[in-house]
Design a protein around this nucleic acid. Structure first.
Lengths: 248, 248
DNA sequence: GAAATAGTGTCTTTAAGACAGTATGTG
DNA sequence: CACATACTGTCTTAAAGACACTATTTC
């Protein structure tokens, strides 16, 4: 039997198969320096009325990353944002309808970009503040709150997925340049510090933060500075070249 | 429409679905202190005769972790080893037959346990030495070599999966107690150092390694020491309690 | 006692935290 | 000029690398 004969013989319908979906944890830092995520209200059973991560089924002719990018564009009208695979959730009954394995991704975006696209999308989208009940990289579920600090009920296992996304970016922040993904093109060192603080959920030492970031060689002054700030204007910086290589 | 009516109405066959598989990167440190992985010779097309990671399809009634544990038991006769999800590979044509998404896992095991089970499994299994052509956590594919240092051809995208597994454990070694998973119950500090060196692919400073490990509080002297070693016998240590919590 | 590695003590180097003090905008 | 925050320089502290020195087994 040669290879083409084998391919013809192979019968993929022999196995009863799970469905494969992609969910996207779209994270940002709001104007109050809180970590937040985009949620979609479920209009259908199960968990009708609860809030869920933007998601959808993977098409037979698209990669996982392409599916995640498509969902991000369909649900939040965002393109070209930082997007990485997070973890694949495959508990047998995580979706009560049928077996659904979901490849969770996380995305990071500057809040101003999110707010701009937000105006154009449906009312069933919300940017929920995250309440992380653990410190460091302990991990666990997170709570989601609306603008009046009322809890939002999450569908399926999405509280765990959100929690894992927070844990992942907390860990990644220490060795990878991802803070910049949550900021506009030009930013001040203190804005970057506030982003780090929002992600890590704790205050950072200003002096050593400056030293470490400047020593990293990842950013460069633009030459410009902020104006109309009521005090000495901080210098603006921008992130240097990206050298990241993704998987998938 | 209430929830049970909806569930009855939901038709999962509407979508053409990918197959979902699990592959396991089973890693160990051999007697020459080289990082190595278990490979299976493919007996069927495609890539017949090439070497592949142990893998198989996910059953409709088992979780991803359960599938990985089953494969580990079926192919290498190993139970109760450290096993974690690695990454999900979903490129459209990664398998030429049909769309197969694979949830890659990695496992760590003491070489003596592997060698003991190795005797009972088929000749189509090999423990291949890994040749990692990059340093640190740069990432990329790895090469696999047999006992005579001859390259083994890898099937599909398995060289990339192996590379990602190496990258992952290199990163994880710095903050998680995974070195112990590659050692027997009792071990000396220098044995642990050699494991770290094999994983990281570089020499470590003996003094600071001792200090760091002892200060971590993760290990405890057993009270015993090695004997018949031709020099001052090193104290034996054992890993304290596990407090790890998995996902999935 | 020689050989070989285990284990200890101390000096140096490096990075982070603390903090004082200067710089430069807005009002 | 007052105020607020940006930015700089120095001291302290903690951890890692280097290295000298002692300890304990086998042969």
């Amino acid at each position: 039997m040669n290879e083409s004969e084998f391919s013809a013989h192979y019968d993929p319908t022999k196995f009863e198969r799970p469905s494969v979906a992609v969910d996207v944890v779209l994270l940002s830092i709001d104007l109050t320096d809180s970590l937040c995520a985009v949620l979609v209200r479920r209009k259908e059973h199960p968990d009708k009325g609860a809030w869920a991560l933007p998601g959808g089924f993977v098409r037979i002719d698209e990669s996982l990353d392409a599916a995640a990018a498509r969902i991000l564009n369909e649900k939040a009208k965002l393109r070209r944002v930082f997007l990485e695979q997070l973890y694949t959730f495959g508990a047998v009954h995580r979706d009560p309808r049928t077996r659904v394995i979901t490849v969770a991704h996380y995305a990071l975006v500057d809040f101003r970009r999110l707010a701009a696209s937000y105006a154009h999308v449906s009312d069933d989208l919300v940017v929920a503040r995250l309440d992380v009940p653990w410190s460091g990289e302990a991990g666990g579920a997170v709570r989601t709150l609306d603008e009046r600090a009322k809890p939002l009920r999450l569908a399926f296992d999405h509280a765990r997925i959100l929690g894992l996304a927070v844990k992942r970016i907390r860990g990644k922040l220490n060795y990878a340049p991802i803070g910049f993904e949550l900021l506009p093109e030009a930013f001040t060192l203190f804005e970057l510090q506030r982003v780090h603080q929002a992600v890590l959920g704790r205050k950072l030492n200003k002096d050593s933060f400056r030293r470490k970031i400047l020593a990293s060689g990842l950013i460069e002054p633009t030459g410009a500075a902020q104006t109309n700030v009521g005090h000495r204007p901080p210098a603006l910086y921008h992130f240097l070249k990206e050298q990241g290589a993704n998987h998938g």
